[in-house]
Design a protein around this nucleic acid. Structure first.
Ligand code: SF4
Ligand code: SF4
Lengths: 156, 156
DNA sequence: ATTAAAGCATACCAATACGGTATTGATTAA
DNA sequence: TTAATCAATACCGTATTGGTATGCTTTAAT
């Protein structure tokens, strides 16, 4: 089950709530209440989001969190990277990392393509997109040209 | 670090070797030797590949493994599913599974789009593609139309 | 039939990653 | 000064994963 971490998922949920709130600052409590997440979990999520620069935090009384940019400027890729680091499908794709057989592996260089494709997809879907169910179908429909193109290539 | 499991990765490496061998059957020992993987690991990998129908096994003396279909007909999606089950980026995307807050989560329905996009990508890259480094760049280049299209959508 | 070469199935273990929780400290507005 | 709020760190239990070992079943060749 190829999946992203729960925390990453929660991150998106929180971002969604922040987008809803707009200019209004939300406290940790607010977020916990709105999302149904446990308080400590929210803290952990917020730390990652703040560290990555996706949300701004203001502390002290009447503080809270707000988005650092417009929802249309927050890419899924940013969120994923905030929680899970760089996208590297294989070990050898990550910097410095290399698996036991990297030396003799004839494919170590060949994963780059898929890696980039996945990255592209994540980079092009924004928080705004994911907030809007109608756009979901649109995205998939738009991807069809890609698939048919590759199909042609494969016939060669 | 969004990644696939090592076993999945190894699966591709093995498939690559089988593709190279063509009609010739490879034994577990052969595969271990060619790839540099440990014998028990190869066994585990082969089980998944056979169960999923991607490779045929013939047992007994002079037995061995060979691809069940042409490399161009083996999709990365098939391999990933063979090792990791269905592609479900979030908990709620998998059948029956649902996270603690699914009930109150406003985004539970909205991950479908990305999920399908990722699936599409994996479905359209074949073993043949990944064996050929030159095709890597081609694939990424072909993806550009998709990205520019989405860019336009985002401006609305 | 016998035998040896293979694949098959299962069970087990260790390490890591992950999710979740608690505690304490640092800021800042009122 | 004080209360509200975020920040930092540290901890722990569990689940997953990767890796290993062992014994059994099938089959071709002789
Ligand atoms: S070297 Fe080969 S087996 Fe190792 S991570 Fe890279 S692709 Fe996978
Ligand atoms: S319900 Fe919401 S939080 Fe739970 S898995 Fe689905 S999207 Fe993620």
């Amino acid at each position: 089950m190829l999946k992203i971490g729960k925390l990453t998922d929660y991150g998106v949920v929180v971002l969604n709530e922040l987008a809803q709130a707009g200019a209004l600052k939300l406290s940790t409590d607010d977020i916990a209440g709105l999302t149904g997440l446990a308080l400590p979990t929210v803290r952990k999520v917020m730390k990652a989001l703040v560290d990555s620069g996706l949300v701004m935090a203001q502390r002290g009384a009447r503080g809270g969190y707000r988005l650092a940019r417009a929802p249309g400027q927050i890419r899924m890729l940013d969120v994923v990277q905030a929680f899970e680091g760089p996208v590297a499908l294989t070990e050898c794709a990550a910097d410095d990392h290399q698996c036991d057989i990297t030396a003799s592996c004839s494919l170590s260089a060949n994963w780059g393509g898929i890696n980039q494709l996945i990255t592209q997809v994540l980079a092009r879907v924004t928080l705004q997109d994911i907030r809007n169910p109608e756009r979901q179908e649109q995205l998939v429909r738009d991807a069809l040209p890609l698939t048919s193109f590759i199909e042609l290539v494969n016939l060669s």
